[in-house]
Amino acid sequence: MSELEVIKLALGDKVSNIAWDLDGWVIRLKGSNLTNLKISRRLVGISFDWEWHFVTPLIIHEEVDEAGLHLYREMKRREVQIKRRGMLRYSYEWVTGELLTKVFPEITPESDLLVLLNRDGTLHRLLRRSSIDELYVNTYFELGVASLSDEALRKYYESPTMVGWLITAIKGPGSEWRFGAIVKRIYELLDYLAGKLLNFSRELESRLALL
């Protein structure tokens, strides 16, 4: 069974359409908090091990007005990622995003999203179940070669074209022979996380509107 067929089987009736894009499969989803999910396989450094990247954008507004810009910058203060502990069985903790502190040292992080996620028992259960290696929740930015640089990130922060989140989950080496189960579990994790983030973003937007 090919990689693609395993993905189709794992996601079942959630799949609306699948297409190849540059370096991975882009899966358009239905009946889900996620609109689409990109699954790509990348080499880990010198070793020929593969790691799997699951990337999904979560768009809140497709156009950016002044309120949207404000929302985007407030969301930026809330970028988070997981910190993994343990050896045989992992435990997870949400912490402030590394990208935020490194690329935007002048921005003061806000901890409300982080606290919310850390208190969510279901989310922790899904994290442990997927045994994910890395998970990042960043504000949306355009993907592309240039956007990987710090400067491009700052540029996008100055004038974003869309407001939303970009969730990146990474599953490290040793996943090939249980790839189907991994895809399913990571999808469930991302779907649940996306739901939480959507609710949080709407609530944040309302709070900002009241100010």
Binding site: V44, G45, E51, M87, D133, E134, G172, P173
Partner: peptide
């Protein structure tokens, strides 16, 4: 496996 699980894949990659 033990090293990757303890120090993570990125640090393993840097130091291996």
């Amino acid at each position: 496996v033990v090293l990757i699980r303890t120090i993570g894949v990125r640090r393993f990659e840097s130091y291996v």
